[in-house]
């Protein structure tokens, strides 16, 4: 657990940091943060419980417990990461532990939206590139400088063309990833839409 947590704010155009590799397909959000930690009315304390059960099982050998990873901030994962429950507690716990960006083979849809909504850019790479990075991380420290403008990452011995959804990339560069204010800009159109929907009128008992 890192000491001071400050949530990201505004434009995100670069993420620089040490990589931490987490091997496994279909790692679900129950594993990222078990349900018992969802009994809270804010996200503040979730960082220390990230991967709680997996970490207990591995008794100190889990990547999130290794001394050499304690300052890592770029998570490297395999396919379908974050599947299952929609709990935003999962990316919130990762972020509060210190994760600032994730690079993986693929992500579950809701997890991906949650990450974007809280300011964690998620990038994809083909399976073999991910495995190469994970092998590299096994042996030495890997520091990456991620440039969102060009969807490009550079390290000491490698450079990577990262994939990211264009809508997400634009939102991070413009600082509009915290969507509420962007959505509110269309307040008039929202009102019109409301009035135009057929079912708003015929559901008399709704209100």
């Amino acid at each position: 657990m890192k000491s001071e947590f400050t949530p990201p704010i505004g434009k995100i155009s670069n993420v620089n940091g040490q990589c931490i590799s987490m091997i496994g397909n279909d790692i679900d959000t129950d594993r990222i943060i078990p349900a018992r930690f969802l009994k809270c009315v804010n996200f503040d304390l979730l960082g220390e419980s990230v991967f709680e059960d997996d970490r207990k099982t591995l008794k100190g050998r889990h990547p999130f417990d290794l001394e050499e990873n304690k300052n890592a901030s770029i998570l490297i994962v395999n396919s379908n990461f974050g599947c299952g429950s929609s709990r935003e507690h999962a990316p919130q716990a990762l972020m509060r532990w210190g994760i600032k960006a994730i690079i993986g083979e693929s992500f579950a849809d809701i997890f991906y939206s949650n990450c974007i909504a809280i300011g964690i850019p998620c990038f994809t790479l083909p399976k073999n590139s991910i495995e190469e990075i994970q092998n590299y991380c096994d042996n030495k420290f890997l520091f990456l400088e991620i440039d969102l403008k060009n969807s490009f990452a550079t390290g000491k011995d490698l450079s990577l063309n990262l994939e990211i959804k264009e809508s997400s990339r634009k939102m991070f560069l413009s600082g509009e990833w915290d969507a509420t204010s962007t959505l509110l800009e269309n307040e008039n159109i929202i009102e019109n839409k409301f009035n135009e929907l057929p079912y708003i009128n015929f559901n008399s008992r709704f209100s």
């Binding site: 507690h89 939206s113 949650n114 909504a117 809508s167 915290d178 509420t180």
Partner: peptide, 17 residues
């Protein structure tokens, strides 16, 4: 399904991105 930030967006705007 949506996450909590999108719950916030629906409450505030009745829309999501």
């Amino acid at each position: 399904g949506i996450g909590t930030s999108q719950v916030r967006d629906v409450l505030a705007t009745q829309t999501i991105a």
